[in-house]
C-alpha cells in the first residue's frame, strides 16, 4: 500500500503524459477524422508500452547520472514536484515540458541532499532542449520535400491518396507513440529506477527485473491517460492550434517522432560511439516542442509567413523557468516530507 502511494506521483505523471502528449502523435489524424479515436488510442496504447519497455533505459541512465534519488519518499517527492510544476505552469499559461520539469526537480533534490550536480550531464541535457526543436525542423523540411516529390511522381487520385494517407498516419502514429514511450518513460519512472520496487519476476519464461517492471507500469499509466483523457486534446489539436492538412500532419509526426526516437535509440548511440562518431545523448525531450519545431520547419519552407515567433520565444523562456520552478518546488516539498512526515528523502 505504501509502495502504491509512493509510485502514485510517477503514475500521475504518466497519466498526464498520455492525456496530453498522445495528441502530438495522433491529434491531427483524429481531429480531422482521418483515423477514429478508438483506433488511434488502441495503436498508441500498445506502441507506447512497447516503447517504454524496450527502449526506455537510455534516458533513465542519463537522468540517473544527473542525480541518483535513492529512497522511495525522495523519488515520490521529486516526481510529485515535477507533476505539480507542470500542472501549475500549465494553469497560469506558461510553456512547460515534463522533461524539463523532471530535470529541475532532480537538481532540486541534489541541492537539498547537498550533492553536486554533474555539469557535463546537465550541459548535455540542456543542449538537447535546443537541439530537439531545431533537429525536428530540419527533419520536417527533409520529409516535406521527400513527400512532395513522391506525390508529384506517383500522382495518385484524390481517393487513393486519402486511403494511403490514413495508412501512413496510422503507421507514423505507431512510430510516434513508440518513440514517446521510449523517450519519455524516463520522465515518468526514471526517478524510481534507483530504488528496488519490484522483485525480479518470470513472465512467459523470461525473468524481468525491477526497471522493466517499472517501465511497463509507467507505460500502462501513459496508456490509461491516452484512453481516458486524450480524446478532447486530440480534437482540439486537430481542429485548431495546428491547422495542418493530413499529409503535412504525417510529415510533422514523422519528423518529431524521429527526433524523439534518436534521443532514445540506444543501439544507434552505441553504434556511433564505437565508431568514434558524434552521438546524440539519450535524454527525454519534449514531444510538444519537437512538434512545434517540425511545424516551424514546414512554415519556413512555405515562406515563413505563418511562423509564430512569439510562441518560439515562449518555449525558449520555458527552458529556464521550468527547471528553476521545479527545483524550488522540489526543495520545499522535500523539506516538508523530511521534517513533517519524518521520511528519509
Amino acid at each position: 500500500m505504501q509502495m502504491a502511494i509512493f509510485l502514485s506521483s510517477g503514475l500521475f505523471l504518466g497519466w498526464s503524459l498520455g492525456a496530453n502528449d498522445a495528441a502530438n502523435v495522433f491529434g491531427t489524424a483524429v481531429g480531422t477524422r482521418m483515423i477514429s479515436f478508438r483506433l488511434a488510442a488502441a495503436i498508441a496504447s500498445v506502441a507506447v508500452i512497447v516503447g517504454a519497455v524496450s527502449g526506455g533505459s537510455g534516458g533513465t541512465e542519463t537522468l540517473g547520472k544527473l542525480g541518483s534519488v535513492g529512497t522511495m519518499p525522495g523519488a515520490f517527492t521529486v516526481a510529485l514536484a515535477a507533476a505539480f510544476t507542470v500542472f501549475w505552469m500549465t494553469r497560469i499559461g506558461l510553456p512547460v515540458s515534463t522533461s524539463q520539469a523532471i530535470v529541475g526537480a532532480i537538481i532540486g533534490w541534489n541541492f537539498y541532499a547537498g550533492l553536486p550536480t554533474d555539469t557535463d550531464t546537465l550541459t548535455r541535457i540542456v543542449s538537447t532542449w535546443v537541439l530537439c526543436p531545431v533537429l525536428s525542423a530540419l527533419f520536417a523540411v527533409l520529409f516535406f520535400f521527400a513527400v512532395r516529390g513522391l506525390l508529384r511522381v506517383v500522382r495518385v487520385g484524390i481517393f487513393r491518396q486519402d486511403a494511403y494517407t490514413r495508412f501512413a498516419l496510422a503507421a507514423a502514429g505507431a512510430f510516434g507513440a513508440y518513440s514517446l514511450g521510449a523517450n519519455n518513460i524516463a520522465n515518468v519512472m526514471g526517478v524510481f529506477a534507483q530504488v528496488p520496487v519490484f522483485e525480479p519476476a518470470a513472465f512467459f519464461g523470461v525473468t524481468v527485473g525491477n526497471t522493466v517492471q517499472l517501465f511497463a507500469l509507467g507505460g500502462v499509466a501513459i496508456a490509461v491517460g491516452i484512453v481516458t483523457y486524450s480524446k478532447r486534446v486530440m480534437e482540439t489539436v486537430g481542429a485548431g492550434i495546428f491547422r495542418l492538412s493530413p499529409v503535412t500532419a504525417f510529415v510533422v509526426v514523422m519528423a518529431s517522432s524521429t527526433v524523439l526516437f534518436l534521443f532514445a535509440a540506444e543501439g544507434l548511440n552505441e553504434w556511433l560511439t564505437t565508431r568514434s562518431l558524434p552521438a546524440l545523448p539519450l535524454v527525454p525531450v519534449s514531444s510538444s516542442q519537437a512538434v512545434v519545431g517540425a511545424v516551424t520547419g514546414i512554415g519556413i519552407v512555405k515562406g515563413g509567413r505563418n511562423i509564430r515567433y512569439a510562441r518560439l520565444l515562449k518555449i525558449a523562456s520555458g527552458w529556464g523557468s521550468t527547471p528553476v520552478a521545479a527545483g524550488v518546488i522540489t526543495f520545499i516539498l522535500l523539506f516538508f516530507v523530511e521534517n513533517l512526515f519524518l521520511l528519509p528523502v
Binding site: 481517393f159 487513393r160 486519402d162 486511403a163 495508412f167
Partner: peptide, 10 residues
C-alpha cells in the same frame, strides 16, 4: 475496404 471504397467512388 478503404481502397475498395476509394476505387468505387473514383
Amino acid at each position: 475496404g478503404l481502397f475498395k471504397h476509394a476505387r468505387d467512388l473514383e
